[in-house]
C-alpha cells in the first residue's frame, strides 16, 4: 500500500512540476488536451455559464471547484456535448481537442462522446446487464471490435479501474449487485473501455462513503497517466488532494457562473491571485 502511495505521489509531484513549469513558460499547445475559448452555456435565455476561456492540460487532473449553482457541472457537460441533450439548452464558443472544434457544425456529437467520456455523480450501471456486459457496453453498442477483443478489453479496463481482483470471479453477475463504490469503479471501467482521450467526472464520490471515496481518489491518480481528467467537486480538500490544476468558479450577479481564477493547484490553495478565491478556500463563503 505504501509503495503504491509513494509511486502515486512521485508521479503526482512530477506532473505538478511539469505543469507548473509550463504555466511559467507558456505551454506548447500539444500538451493541451482541450482548449476552451469563450464558452457560454445557456438554458433557453438564461446564461448558466459566462464566457470561459481555459486550457485543460493533457494527462493531468483539472478540478472545477466553486459554490453550488455556479455552473461547474453545466460547463463540464459542454465538454462532451451532453449539455445540448436537454431541451432548450445551447452552447456558444469553441472547444478544441487536438485542434478540432467539438462544436463545428460538421461534427457529430455521438462521435465526440466516444473521445470524451463521462462518469456521473450517482453510479449508474445498466441493471439489465452483467458486470462484463456493462464494461463492454460502450464497445458493443458502438458496434466496434470482435468478440475476443471484447473479452480482453473488459479485463484490461477492469484492471485499470482497480476492480478486476474483486470481480474476476463474478463477471456474469448483474452490475447492480456490487456495492456503491464498486459500482462507480465499474462505471469508470465502462467509460475507459472505449478509450477516450479525456474523462470527465461529475462529483464522482459524492454518493460514496469515505473508504470508497479514498479508493476512487487513488484510482484517479493512476488513471491520469493514461487519460486527461476533468473533475467537478464540491469538496475542496478532494480537489487539493487529487488535482494538478484547479479552476475556481463563482456565481455572478446575474445568477450565471463565471471563471474567477485557474492555475496550478498548489498555487490556488496557498497563494491565489484573486481575493474571492482566497475567501472561498478559507471557507468564508460557499
Amino acid at each position: 500500500m505504501t509503495n503504491e502511495k509513494a509511486k502515486i505521489s512521485i508521479k503526482a509531484s512530477a506532473t505538478k512540476g511539469r505543469s507548473a513549469e509550463q504555466a511559467r513558460t507558456g505551454a506548447a499547445s500539444n500538451s493541451m488536451a482541450m482548449k476552451l475559448l469563450n464558452v457560454e452555456a445557456m438554458y433557453g435565455t438564461f446564461r448558466a455559464v459566462n464566457n470561459v476561456t481555459l486550457d485543460i492540460e493533457a494527462k493531468s487532473v483539472t478540478a472545477f471547484i466553486g459554490p453550488s449553482g455556479c455552473g461547474k457541472t453545466t460547463l463540464l457537460r459542454t465538454l462532451n456535448r451532453m449539455h445540448e441533450t436537454l431541451p432548450g439548452a445551447t452552447v456558444k464558443g469553441s472547444i478544441q481537442v487536438g485542434g478540432a472544434d467539438l462544436y463545428d457544425p460538421s461534427v457529430d456529437p455521438v462521435r465526440v462522446r466516444r473521445s470524451v467520456g463521462m462518469v456521473f455523480q450517482k453510479p449508474n450501471p445498466f441493471p439489465a446487464m452483467s458486470i462484463a456486459e456493462n464494461v463492454s457496453s460502450g464497445l458493443r453498442l458502438s458496434g466496434t471490435k470482435s468478440k475476443s477483443d471484447v473479452a480482453d478489453i473488459v479485463e484490461e479496463s477492469l484492471r485499470k479501474a482497480a476492480l478486476w481482483d474483486e470481480v474476476k470471479d463474478k463477471l456474469k453477475e448483474p452490475g447492480v449487485s456490487l456495492s456503491g463504490g464498486q459500482q462507480q469503479r465499474l462505471c469508470i471501467a465502462r467509460t475507459i473501455a472505449v478509450e477516450p482521450e479525456i474523462v470527465l467526472m461529475d462529483e464522482p464520490c459524492s454518493a460514496l462513503d469515505p473508504l470508497a471515496t479514498l479508493k476512487i481518489e487513488e484510482l484517479i491518480g493512476e488513471l491520469k497517466t493514461r487519460f486527461t481528467i476533468v473533475i467537478v467537486t464540491h469538496n475542496m480538500q478532494q480537489a487539493a488532494r487529487v488535482s494538478d490544476t484547479t479552476a475556481f468558479f463563482n456565481m455572478g450577479a446575474d445568477r450565471g457562473g463565471y471563471l474567477v481564477e485557474a492555475g496550478p493547484t498548489s498555487k490556488i490553495f496557498t497563494n491565489p491571485s484573486n481575493k474571492l478565491t482566497e475567501d472561498y478556500i478559507a471557507g468564508r463563503f460557499g
Binding site: 455521438v110 462522446r113 467520456g117 456521473f120 449508474n124 445498466f126 439489465a128 457496453s137 453498442l141 458502438s142
Partner: peptide, 22 residues
C-alpha cells in the same frame, strides 16, 4: 431512470441504440 440513458449517451452510443439496447 434518466441516468441510464445519459450514461449510454455519454459512452458515445447514438440515441436510437440507447433506446433499444438500454
Amino acid at each position: 431512470p434518466a441516468g441510464l440513458r445519459e450514461a449510454s449517451l455519454a459512452l458515445g452510443v447514438p440515441l436510437w441504440r440507447t433506446t433499444i439496447f438500454v
